[in-house]
Design a protein around this nucleic acid. Structure first.
Length: 446
DNA sequence: AGACCTTTGAAGTCA
DNA sequence: TGACTTCAAAGGTCT
């Protein structure tokens, strides 16, 4: 796919942001071309999708409404091109890198201590978080949010997918989808829970984490919340009747958080992200053997080992091998910008439309995606970029096939403090941790 | 039960 | 280098 900034730029795929905004010239020609294509393909527009969009789409979707569903790759390309040119026209030909607002990174000057002594976010960090994730409310802390925390402890069977035979969080939480809309009703990073204030270690003065069994301080997701994206670390959330991924006392629950706890916590993180046999042993960790949702463990059919092997020719065997290889546990890909957008907007579209079929929903979402402004899309490209960044940090040895690396590489405090992308990763992880309770964030800010 | 549909984008492979 | 392939999410539908 064509990239604006070619091979340069961000090593983690910052290129992707510019897909839609390339090319100079040929504008007039392509505009007419697009118009023609649209007219031709309007006939084959799905009546179902059409009806839904006609009824539901707002003015922002007007362009998408006019555009018939892409029925061919060429039309998709043309559609994209038309949008590219539209974007360029908006640019007035002056568009240059950085491809979108907020990129490249804007570093937090006082990253190491984004918290004020009272436990609230420092203005700088708050500004940063607000800037980077406009939908993330970093201000409010309220009883309401704490109530939401409690509410989230109840299981939400409606969100439990039984489709995919993989270990997956009941809320369909992609473990690397941490960066999307969280309302302050569900997330209050700034203020420590009240129970923590009283529970402070007398020796260190560091808030002592509560016993986790009765109070779930994790980020909640109201089951009925439309358009809410689950907690990025949602697989950590203990749920009734749901498997609890291992959170050990050596991890987030360490009673006396220290700088070393970063490693322990990350080890805990990894211990839950990798199957036990792949997790390096930790003196204080136990592994439950419950795989991590990011790791797809297909239920491989028990092929009869006593089948007529002789009848299988080599090609069949190869195919079988490939199939089995496919079904082996692997790390899921990080979500791209559009996937992130879909994940966020699907519920909204479903609520707006009478449609439930994902294929039709996706058609709508695809057109809405194209109808998004550059800035709106850039937000998702940025999120996707961070997804990939975190993914690479978590799974450094991950191949294109996203197979499990030989060994997870733990993130240490030193690696996080590396001046280059380590610092960015630190920001990222810190921001993810923003959605953890205060006492569990503290350790990363010595 | 599992494949299919449908979307975009990332990343790998191959010629 | 471009074309092609696969796979991420989602859930109804079909075989």
């Amino acid at each position: 796919m064509p990239q604006l900034n070619g091979g340069g730029g961000d090593d983690l795929g910052a290129n992707d942001e510019m897909i839609s905004f390339k090319d100079e010239g040929e504008q007039e020609e392509k505009i007419s071309e697009n118009s023609s294509a649209e007219r031709d393909l309007a006939d084959v527009k799905s009546s179902l999708v059409n009806e839904s969009e006609t009824n539901q789409n707002s003015s922002s979707d007007s362009e998408a409404e006019r555009r018939p569903p892409p029925r061919s790759e060429s039309f998709r390309d043309k559609t994209r091109e038309s949008l590219e040119e539209a974007a360029k026209r908006q640019d007035g030909g002056l568009f240059k890198s950085p491809p979108y607002p907020g990129y490249p990174f804007i570093m937090i000057p006082d990253l190491t201590s984004p918290y004020l002594p009272n436990g609230s976010l420092s203005p700088t960090a708050r500004t940063y978080l607000q800037m980077k994730w406009p939908l993330l409310d970093v201000h409010a802390g309220s009883l309401q949010s704490r109530q939401a925390l409690k509410d989230a402890r109840s299981p939400s069977p409606a969100h439990i997918s039984n489709k995919v035979p993989v270990v997956q969080h009941p809320h369909h939480v992609h473990p690397l989808t941490p960066l999307i809309t969280y309302s302050n009703e569900h997330f209050t990073p700034g203020n420590p829970p009240p129970h923590l204030q009283a529970d402070v270690d007398p020796k260190t003065g560091i808030p002592r984490p509560p016993h986790p069994s009765d109070i779930s301080p994790y980020y909640p997701l109201s089951p009925g919340t439309v358009g809410q994206i689950p907690h990025p670390l949602g697989w950590l959330v203990p749920q009734q009747g749901q498997p609890v991924y291992p959170i050990t006392t050596g991890g987030f629950r360490h009673p006396y958080p220290t700088a070393l706890t970063v490693n322990a916590s990350m080890s805990s993180l990894f211990s839950s992200r990798f199957p036990p046999h792949m997790v390096p042993p930790h003196h204080s960790l136990h592994t439950t053997g419950i795989p991590h949702p990011a790791i797809v463990t297909h239920n491989v059919k028990q092929e009869s080992s006593h089948s007529d092997i002789g009848s299988l020719n080599s090609s069949k065997q190869d195919a079988k091998k490939e199939e089995e290889k496919k079904k082996q546990p692997h790390i899921k890909k990080p979500l791209n910008a559009f996937m992130l957008y879909m994940k966020e907007m699907r519920a909204k579209v479903v609520a707006e439309c009478t449609l439930k079929e994902s294929a039709a929903i996706n058609q709508i979402l695809g057109r809405r995606w194209h109808a998004l402004s550059r800035e709106e899309q850039a937000k998702y490209y940025e999120l996707a970029r961070k997804e990939r960044q975190l993914h690479m940090q978590l799974y450094p040895g991950c191949s294109s096939l996203l197979l499990l690396p030989q060994q997870p590489v733990p993130i240490t405090s030193s690696s996080l403090e590396q001046p280059e992308n380590g610092r960015q990763t630190c920001i990222h992880i810190c921001c993810i941790l923003q959605r953890l309770p205060f006492n569990e964030q503290a350790f990363i800010y010595p």
